[in-house]
Each structure stands twice: as C-alpha cells, then as structure tokens.
Write a protein that binds this DNA or RNA. Sequence first.
DNA 1: GCCATTTACTTTTGCGGCGGAAGAATCCAC
DNA 2: GTGGATTCTTCCGCCGCAAAAGTAAATGGC
Lengths: 385, 385
Amino acid sequence: MTAGASWLPLSAGERSVAIEVLVHGPLSRTELARRLDLSPGSLTRLTKPLIESGLLIEVPEAGSPAEARQGRPSQPLDVVAESRSFLGFKITEDMVYGVVTTLRSDIVARHDRPLTTHDPDRVADLVAEMTAELTRLHPRLAGIGIGVGGLVRDRSVVGESPFLNWREVPLAALVEERTGLPVIVENDVAALVEAETWFGAGRGYDRFVVLTIGAGIGYGLVLGGKRVPYAEEDRGFGRHWIINPNGPLTPEGERGSAVSLLTIPNIRYQVRAATGRDHTYEEILALAAAGEPMPARVIDEAGRALGILVAQIANFVLPQKILLAGEGVGLIEVAGKVVDDTLRTHRHPLAAPVDLETKVSDFHDWARGAAVLAIQVLVLGSVEA
Amino acid sequence: MTAGASWLPLSAGERSVAIEVLVHGPLSRTELARRLDLSPGSLTRLTKPLIESGLLIEVPEAGSPAEARQGRPSQPLDVVAESRSFLGFKITEDMVYGVVTTLRSDIVARHDRPLTTHDPDRVADLVAEMTAELTRLHPRLAGIGIGVGGLVRDRSVVGESPFLNWREVPLAALVEERTGLPVIVENDVAALVEAETWFGAGRGYDRFVVLTIGAGIGYGLVLGGKRVPYAEEDRGFGRHWIINPNGPLTPEGERGSAVSLLTIPNIRYQVRAATGRDHTYEEILALAAAGEPMPARVIDEAGRALGILVAQIANFVLPQKILLAGEGVGLIEVAGKVVDDTLRTHRHPLAAPVDLETKVSDFHDWARGAAVLAIQVLVLGSVEA
DNA sequence: GCCATTTACTTTTGCGGCGGAAGAATCCAC
DNA sequence: GTGGATTCTTCCGCCGCAAAAGTAAATGGC
C-alpha cells in the first residue's frame, strides 16, 4: 500500500542486478559479478541500497548445506518475494479469472467470477470488486495486469476485441480510477509470452518462440530478450498460415490453415461434421487414443500440421527453444509421435534438434501472465516493453 | 602497407562512431550525437582522435549546396574510403573470382582466374598470385576475405566443402603464409549476408533476412544487427523445406522442397524431363515469358513456391526486410505476379506488407561479400562476428 | 587448537567517459 | 551590422567502474 508506482529510482546498474536476482533466483554477489561482468566492488555498491530498501535480502545458504566448499561461504541474495503482491486478470467472454502472485510470479491465490455483461464500465466494476476482495487477504498490492484477447494499444487501451465487442475501450484508466492502483492492459498472448520470457520456459534465452493452441492460434517471438510486436497480433492469427492446401475447410479458417487444423473449435467441428456427434476436445483426444477412426484421423492430421508448423518456425527463426502452450496442447500426448516424425522430416538431418517444451495452460496461467506485466512495470519503472 | 592487423585500439565509443560513419555515409557530429544518443561534447572528444589518425575526414558539405539552412553549417565526417584496400575472393568449382574494394566496400577492380585443380596448396598459390597482381595496382591492402561454399569453422578452416572435395583445410593459414596478410575465410552465403547487413539492403535494420537462390538455396538471418549462425549452414540447405508435398521429385531434392522447386539446376532438370531438351536458365525464363507451356508451368510453380517461402519467413520471423539474392532471382521478373499473389494469400490482411528487395548477384558480389569480412575485422579488431 | 589457505565480500582510491553549461564559430534574415 | 539560429568546442564536475588492498568467515593440516 505504501508502494509508489515503481521502485525507487533505480540506476541502470541497480536495475540489472534486481532483474537478474528476480529472474534467476538467489544469487551470490560473486555470481552476479560474473553474470553481469562487473567487479566485486561494484556489486557491493549496487546491492547495498537494494538491501537497505528491503528489495533484496540475504538468505541463509543455497540448496545443499552439505556442499561445503573451502573459503568464506557465499551469501546469496534473493528478492523478498512476498514484499509485494500483484494481481493478474484474464477476461474471457463469460468469465474473469484472477490471480494474486508474489514478486516472483508465484500464484498465491485464485479468484474467478462470471462475467454477465460486456459493458466496459460494468467489467471495470467487476475487476475492481475482485481487486477489493483479493486485497483483503493480500495487502501490499503493487499493481494490476489485465490480459484481453484482441488488439491492445499502449498497454492501456483495448483497440478491438471481437468477443467482447469492444472498440477503443480505455480499460486501464477505468480500472485505475476505481482501484487507485497502476494498471497494465495487454493482449493475452503477449502477456503469456512476457511471463514465460521472464519467469518461465524462455528464461535466459535470446531467441525464443511461444506458440499457443486453444480457441485460436497465438504466436510470440522473443529476440534478444524482448518480445517483437507485430500488426496483426491476435486478430485472426494463423488463419493465413496455410499448412496443407488440401486440408479441411472450416467455417472461419481458410482451407488447411493452422487455425482450421489445430484450434479446439475447428477440431470439434471436423469431428462433428464427420461423425454427426458433438464431443468435447478431451473426449476427442480420448477417442483418438482409443483408435476411433474419425477422431483419430482428425487428430492425426492435427499432429502432422503441428509438426510442420514447429519445423517451419525452427527452420526460419532458429530459436533456442519453442514453447507450446494453451488449452489445446493435450494434442501432444495423443499425437506426440506423429508430431515428432513430421518435425523430423521437415528438418535438416544436421540441424540441432528442436528444444520443444509443452505446457498445458489453464486460464489462471493466462492471468498470471498479465500479473507479470505489472511486475515488469514495477521493476523497470516504465510501461515500455 | 603500414597498417597493422586492425585499427589503433579504439575505445568502445570511438568504434561505434567509426562504424556509424562507415556504414551510414557522411554524418555530422550533431547527427552522430543524435543517432548514438551522446552529448555534443562527447562527439568532439570521440571524433578528434579518429580524424587525427586519418581514419575520418571532414568533407566539404553533403548533397545539395543550395539546401542552406540557418545557423552554422554542419561539418559532415566521412571515412577515407581509399585509405585502405581489401581483397575478396569467391571460390567456385572451376573459377576464382576476385575483387578489390575500398573501405566502403565499393568494388574498384575485378580479376578472375580459372581454377584447374582443387589441391588446397595449389588453390592457395593461385589466390596468392592473384593477390600479388591486384596489390600491384592497389596498395595499402589491409586484409583478405575468401568465400567458399560449404562449412567453415572459426572463420579460417574449411571443414567440409563437397564441390571442392575438401575436409579440414586450413585455408586462411595457407593464404596468410603466402601473402603475409590477415585472411578471413567464411561460408559464401554468410559473407554475402554480412555484406548486405553492413553495406547493403540490411543496413540499419534489426531483423533482416537474406534468401539466395542459385545452384542451391541459402538462408541468412540477422537479428539485432548480428547474423545468427546455425549448424546445417550450407550443407544441403533447403532440401527439407517441403513447400508442396505433391511437387516434382528431383534427383537431389526431396519431393516439393525449396531446392527441388527453386534452384537453377532443378528447374533445368524439370524442363529437360518434361520437354526432352536442355536449356539454360535464362532461356527457360524467356520461354516461360513467351508462354511456352512446359517452361511456363515450371516457372509458375517456382513462383508459387517462392511466394510461399517468403510468406512463411515473413510470418514467423517478422523481419523488417527480406532480400532475395543470387543468380536465380531473375525468376521474379517473369513470375513476379505469381509470387506477389501467393505471398498475399499466405499473409494476414492486416499484416504489414513485406519489404522485399531483389538483387541479382553475380560472382563478384559474392567476392565483395568476402571482402566485407576483412573490413569488419579491421574495424572491429577481432575475428568474431 | 592454531595457523595457513581459500573464498567472499568491503573499503578505498583513482580515473575514464559522459553530460551540462558556457562560449566560440559561422551561417541567414532583415 | 545586428540578432537569431545552429553547430561545434572547451571546460568542469560527477557518476560509475576497476584495481587493489583490507576484512571476514569458512576449511584443512599439523
């Protein structure tokens, strides 16, 4: 509550130390000196104000106490993860999912509420109410992040969100005036990508790609530790990635596009069209695993499409890691072999194997992503990515 | 001749000034201060030793003298392009192409010689002879760059070059001991990419892609101003980029791969297989333009493949610019419309249009690319990319 | 048990490089 | 010619770093 909008004016050196400790766990001064290429003296100088301000703390000793080396033991520094709380919200068509996280972006509480109206003021009211409820249990709130599917500008205004039927809604301002807290609004995929870049699968990588599969396809490219923004972000993304020109035609997607082959609604549509019966995504995966012909065919084709997609990304972007996330990556568990085989035939035999991580994410993970944006703003002291 | 292996020990600030002027033409101190985000005072300090050492020079006035603004006129600084010469060689199966360039990488002389043997020592002899001949007319030689198709390690050793039948040939050392000059050896595509990044189409961009079409397919990715190296570089690249699984099968390529659809040998093969007659690449392009059915069909399919390839690169890498280079980009002049149309259907309508530049390159352009490596080493003072 | 050794951190000192402010240079406008 | 505009230079002060020396806290050998 006492917190300002951001940490005390941090110098560039102090900020780099703070981020390194925040992202890469407890680190001794010597280790920090090595990583940041600074002298030991500089580390004493830089860490002192950070410790005095209560941001960092000296923790007993890392990991195995048995692992005792000669010489004076190192003194790991860590962020005081509980010193601040952050709120993250993910707004879907009919629900608002909320989480409280620590400075480390660990989720300490969840709280969801149905969304009964899309009126911007009512949505802001609901978010403010949820904030008040969550604040009661988790004080020291430093900021709020909100993830929305659709186009978001300046990290504050929802330029266009088809499923909410919003255009030019200044959501950050609406929530700020109700809560008095700094609010960051961002596209949900972008938020998830930032979260994974700072605290997840993308930590420490220079070239990193996130591909999400769910109601739609999401793509995030991180180069040099920064996410690359692009114009068509989350506005029917992947509908023009034609993977198989002879693939199935689906209502919204082009024929054989990534959207028509991989997204949950379109996989359900294909199975419904073929069998005449409606199934959930999970049911379809189970049926395919059990060898049911039509679902197996659809899932098999989806697996091939995913393999091709990952191969293309790996071939052209040369990322050090690719993260598959979203609600639809359960596909991997059923069609993993097809994905792998397809991937291999579309890669050069001498090419480095693709470092592919899969992470089924639920809506709270998306909300956590939004909370990370609030963390970034606090640490970096600005709204810029 | 007096030159050491690199410029006087340049401080980081001085080096950034030198590179900025070298790459972006004559610039005034004020302009440099703006670009490098430095104070005017710093620019006086940084430029003084560079001018005194003869590296930079104050040039009269840029461009239009009529364009006179108020106030003290700016004093553009430029590199003394002729102060040093650089040699670039491109080694092909049966020829060695050589160029002399200025510090700005402008070609001031060309000199080619047939290659009658692939024995490494004889090749080094030939390069040394050509160096001697070229040095007679162009003294002040500061370094030599050599481009070779194949795998090159440490910018000095040819690890594997199928067409020369070389393995682990320390070409840089062989030429260095014959000429006494610093020698850089690099994969030819990599050299071309570096050249375009510093002095060509990629100048000033953060994300930049080079795609070459010729005897094979070459791919270069530049991120943050630096080329990204990768394992499968120039060892049958593009054979596993399957663009059309129903495409033609060709001797070396997989079915429907970028290699089988786009490279000059494979286009000639397809036409020969279809018509029974052998044509040069240029003849095939002319026949296709004239409406001859079989060549037109092959070229049309190549155009579609190129459009898809460029779209995939644009979709996944989000480059600010893509350069098409190589001997085979004449394709664009005949199949430009097909390429454009295909590109458009594989791109999101809201996506920024692809900035696509085409540049037919001959072997001297490849040699120039190699010379740029020698320039980089002189300026940066190291072998590192 | 004591001291050498090792490793981690702190303190002190000095200096390079930068920004900021003031001044000099050189043009245009009237 | 005077004033304003713009570029560049000079000078000063300071921030931030490295280097080096000193302190702290552990282990290991005897």
